[in-house]
């Protein structure tokens, strides 16, 4: 009970930066807890895990994790992570970013990395808004939802992120909310262990800018809404898992398939072409 007792998660966190900047009731810290659990369960040496983030509230995650972490420019965590992976193929590269960063500004990078099947793990924390810049509309804001740039309700059809990842060629697609901590941790572990482009969407509450404008209550009330409204449908068709405003949230593991990753494909092709002269690059010795 004494405040000096050390949290076992502190070895993965830059505790000198705590308390963090996120609002009370934000789900990002919960997502970090899930990720730390996934990393612990993987049993990989921490030197071999690297986290890349973009800009935004979620982009701050790289700054709080005591791993090799990079805070890159807006929308470009996937090109950065691709370079990191190709320069050192032994690394497990995790891209941890928000919906606006990955699917609006970095939308093209996202679909092309999925098409190439780059061996990356993408964790997209979807809070339906741009939290850091004042609650503007994003490509994932549901229809009718109010944001600072759509004061009378959003009229644009939102992205269905699992379907986008699935049809672009991702090998692992899952969606969970911040209420499903154990399942999210398991999905992240499976995504890290999977060889190829794996995508995990985490639905997270943004009480300050999304919940307040849409009268969804504080963080706790939004979490309870996730608990009441989520439906687990593993292996569902990703076309059917689009999100509605205040509607049901389809959760689960939707896609898990085997495909040759970019690096394996490249090495096979070059070995075919150059035979014994080709030596696959194994990273810095």
């Amino acid at each position: 009970m004494s405040p000096t007792t050390k949290n076992p998660r502190n070895q993965y966190l830059r505790t000198d930066r705590m308390p963090h900047i996120w609002c009370p009731g934000c789900g990002l810290g919960t997502t970090i807890n899930c990720f730390i659990t996934a990393v612990e369960e993987c049993g990989l040496p921490l030197d071999l895990i690297s986290v890349v983030s973009g800009i935004g509230c979620t982009g701050r995650i790289a700054g709080y994790l005591k791993l090799d972490s990079f805070h890159t420019t807006h929308g470009r965590p996937i090109p950065f992570a691709t370079g990191l992976k190709l320069a050192n193929p032994k690394l497990k590269v995790v891209v941890f970013s928000g919906d606006g960063d990955l699917c609006a500004i970095g939308g093209n990078h996202f679909i092309h990395a999925a098409r190439r099947n780059m061996d990356l793990t993408i964790i997209c924390v979807n809070n339906f808004t741009y939290g850091m810049t004042g609650g503007q509309v994003t490509p994932t804001t549901p229809m009718e939802a109010v944001s600072s740039t759509t004061p009378y309700g959003n009229i644009e059809e939102p992205f269905n992120l699992p379907f986008l990842a699935d049809c672009s060629g991702a090998v692992y697609v899952a969606r969970w909310t911040t209420f499903h901590v154990r399942q999210a941790a398991k999905a992240m572990r499976e995504a890290i262990q999977k060889n190829g482009f794996s995508f995990v969407e985490i639905i997270s509450p943004c009480p300050t800018l999304y919940g307040r404008r849409n009268k969804l209550g504080d963080g706790l009330k939004m979490m309870q809404a996730f608990k009441d409204n989520s439906v687990v449908c593993n292996d569902a068709d990703t076309r059917s898992v689009a999100l509605d405003f205040r509607g049901k949230i389809a959760c689960g593991k939707f896609v898990d398939r085997e495909k040759t990753s970019f690096l394996d494909m490249y090495n096979t092709k070059m070995a075919e072409r150059f035979g014994p002269f080709y030596e696959p690059y194994e990273g810095v010795k």
């Binding site: 996120w22 789900g27 919960t30 807890n33 941790a185």
Partner: peptide
């Protein structure tokens, strides 16, 4: 579970 949910790393159960 309290430690898993806590977004501020303030609580943990053992």
């Amino acid at each position: 579970l309290c430690g898993m949910y806590c977004p501020d790393f303030a609580i943990f159960g053992t």
